[in-house]
Amino acid sequence: MRVDARGERLWRVSTPTFAVVGHVELLDTAAGEIFLAKRYSPTYARFVDHGRFWSLDDAVDCLRLGG
């Protein structure tokens, strides 16, 4: 997977051929900063929430391993 920063708080996750898999967004919460993983759904033509994680690596793994 490729992980490219799209700002200070957003990363695009794509395949080696640049097909977009999803995004990871850094959010502030009462419990601290979390990483929100969103996978692109061609069925719905939008990004779907796939979970909240304490690390960028875990959020990217969710997108890489999820289907």
Rank of each mutant, 00 (worst) to 15 (best):
D4T: 15
D4I: 13
D4Q: 12
D4R: 15
D4W: 06
D4L: 14
A5G: 00
A5H: 09
A5S: 12
R6T: 02
R6G: 09
R6H: 07
G7A: 08
G7C: 02
G7I: 00
G7T: 01
E8P: 04
E8F: 00
E8G: 02
E8Q: 02
R9T: 03
R9H: 06
R9N: 08
L10G: 09
L10Y: 02
W11C: 10
W11L: 09
W11N: 13
W11R: 05
R12W: 05
R12H: 07
R12L: 13
R12G: 10
V13A: 14
V13F: 13
V13E: 12
V13H: 11
V13W: 12
V13K: 14
V13L: 13
V13T: 12
S14V: 03
S14W: 01
S14R: 09
S14Q: 09
T15S: 15
T15D: 11
T15F: 11
T15M: 13
P16K: 11
P16H: 04
P16G: 03
T17W: 04
T17P: 05
T17Y: 06
F18G: 02
F18P: 00
F18T: 11
F18A: 12
F18L: 09
A19M: 11
V20N: 05
V20D: 03
V20L: 13
V21K: 15
V21M: 15
V21H: 13
V21Q: 11
V21I: 15
V21P: 14
G22Q: 14
G22E: 10
G22I: 14
H23L: 15
H23M: 07
V24T: 05
V24L: 11
V24Y: 06
E25Y: 02
E25A: 01
E25H: 08
E25Q: 03
E25N: 01
E25C: 00
E25W: 00
L26A: 07
L27G: 01
L27S: 00
L27H: 03
L27R: 14
L27M: 01
L27I: 08
D28M: 04
D28F: 03
D28W: 00
D28S: 07
T29S: 09
T29G: 05
T29I: 02
T29Q: 12
A30V: 11
A31P: 10
A31K: 12
A31S: 14
A31N: 08
G32N: 04
G32S: 02
G32E: 12
E33F: 04
E33G: 06
I34W: 08
I34F: 01
F35W: 04
L36H: 12
L36R: 10
L36D: 07
L36W: 06
A37T: 01
A37V: 04
A37L: 06
A37M: 05
